[in-house]
Computed example of a mutant assay.
Amino acid sequence: MMQHKNLSAAPSASTESNAHLRLDGLTKRYGESFAVASLDLAVPKGELVALLGPSGCGKTTTLRMVAGLITPSEGRIVVGGNDITAMPPYQRDMGLVFQSYALFPHMSVAKNVAFGLEMRKVPKTEIATRVKDALAMVRLETLAERKPRELSGGQQQRVALARALVIQPSILLLDEPLSNLDAKLRDEMRNEIRDIQQNLGITAVFVTHDQVEALSMCDKVVVMKAGKLEQIGTPVEVYEQPASPFVASFVGRTNRLEGMAKGDGTIQVGTIALKVPTRTRGPVDIMMRPHRIRLLEATRDPADDSTNQIHGTIKRVTFVGDLLQYHVDVEGSEIIVEAASDHGRGIRNVGMPVTLSWRVEDTMVFGRSA
């Protein structure tokens, strides 16, 4: 009863056979509650996969089970064809970057990066070479003797990344590594982490609650809700073909209206009849992305077959730098429209009657219980 193809099915056989990391029915229970429930996931070698969802959805618990820091209640963790579910963390050949960076404050940058190699009894001459190479990779070779307190947040993040990569792990795990950085640094580090991951060809799993990070950095996005998998797909798939209203609203901004589908390609929303790209029948939710709605001068001319038009009144205008957000009242419901700010020119005023127009194909339709 929904327009959009559900992409959350198990990976194909070819994906399974190419998987470097595979989770089979991975589950974590605390008493009667499930933190993660029967999660299946296949990550091909060299891909960067995001675990995306709100706080409490189970994404960090999943990452910590993969790292060996939490014991699964059920299921298997398989790397390179080998079951590592019962293997201790230090034998798993994984590099982990924590949200808090977890640097040793009394050690220099070089000593922090060298720590994992020293624990593995790597020869000193090799340690020196690998530390130098790792610091060069994150552009910190000139800061090798500084202490963490003498570094900026972005530099500390680079040290944590170098420390995770210097051991040459099979898999890189990143637990919300950018959440402590300001917006500009987050943008820079997103690009740096992605570039390093691609240059090394390393398999990586990235935990985040930020949909921009997931969409811009990763090959695949795993959307989670309440411990369960909602959808797996490429960034384009989860954005353009969300499997549920939750995915649609969490991965990008949306407007949401309730209506009754007639089965003839139209949906009745109050007194408004909207055209939709499906012949669903019964109660539905419809969703539209704010940036795909055009704000026009008020008109009563009928829309053509490829567009919807509805009429309303501007109730609020919000300036968001490069965007203007218009909050439009339509029969008691609020619809948000986003438009380029254009140097502050042409801003429409509160109280102005307007027409909202969007393509029929940009209407997302999801069946719901009556």
Score class of each variant (00 low, 15 high):
residue 86 A to S: 14
residue 58 G to T: 08
residue 44 P to F: 04
residue 34 F to K: 00
residue 45 K to V: 04
residue 106 H to I: 13
residue 54 P to Y: 12
residue 146 R to E: 05
residue 128 A to L: 08
residue 145 E to Y: 04
residue 60 T to I: 06
residue 35 A to T: 06
residue 127 I to T: 10
residue 66 V to W: 06
residue 133 D to R: 15
residue 128 A to T: 13
residue 91 Q to T: 01
residue 126 E to N: 09
residue 65 M to F: 03
residue 83 D to K: 06
residue 126 E to F: 11
residue 93 D to W: 04
residue 51 L to M: 08
residue 39 L to G: 15
residue 37 A to F: 08
residue 67 A to D: 09
residue 29 R to L: 13
residue 31 G to T: 11
residue 44 P to L: 15
residue 100 S to M: 04
residue 31 G to D: 07
residue 70 I to M: 11
residue 124 K to F: 01
residue 75 G to N: 06
residue 50 A to F: 06
residue 92 R to F: 05
residue 58 G to R: 04
residue 48 L to Y: 06
residue 68 G to K: 14
residue 93 D to I: 15
residue 140 L to W: 02
residue 122 V to F: 06
residue 141 E to Q: 15
residue 101 Y to F: 14
residue 100 S to A: 14
residue 101 Y to R: 14
residue 70 I to N: 10
residue 140 L to D: 01
residue 112 N to A: 06
residue 47 E to Q: 15
residue 99 Q to L: 07
residue 143 L to R: 14
residue 43 V to M: 08
residue 105 P to C: 03
residue 64 R to P: 00
residue 46 G to V: 09
residue 103 L to P: 10
residue 40 D to P: 04
residue 54 P to F: 12
residue 85 T to V: 09
residue 74 E to Y: 08
residue 111 K to G: 03
residue 98 F to L: 08
residue 32 E to A: 12
residue 86 A to D: 14
residue 67 A to F: 12
residue 79 V to Y: 00
residue 116 G to E: 02
residue 117 L to E: 13
residue 106 H to D: 02
residue 72 P to R: 13
residue 70 I to G: 00
residue 82 N to H: 09
residue 57 C to S: 15
residue 100 S to N: 15
residue 126 E to P: 01
residue 43 V to L: 07
residue 56 G to L: 03
residue 76 R to D: 12
residue 70 I to V: 15
residue 100 S to P: 01
residue 38 S to W: 01
residue 86 A to I: 02
residue 77 I to P: 00
residue 101 Y to V: 11
residue 104 F to V: 05
residue 68 G to F: 08
residue 69 L to K: 08
residue 73 S to I: 05
residue 77 I to C: 12
residue 30 Y to C: 01
residue 65 M to K: 02
residue 70 I to D: 12
residue 71 T to G: 04
residue 67 A to M: 11
residue 74 E to M: 12
residue 130 R to N: 09
residue 30 Y to N: 01
residue 113 V to H: 15
residue 105 P to R: 01
residue 91 Q to I: 02
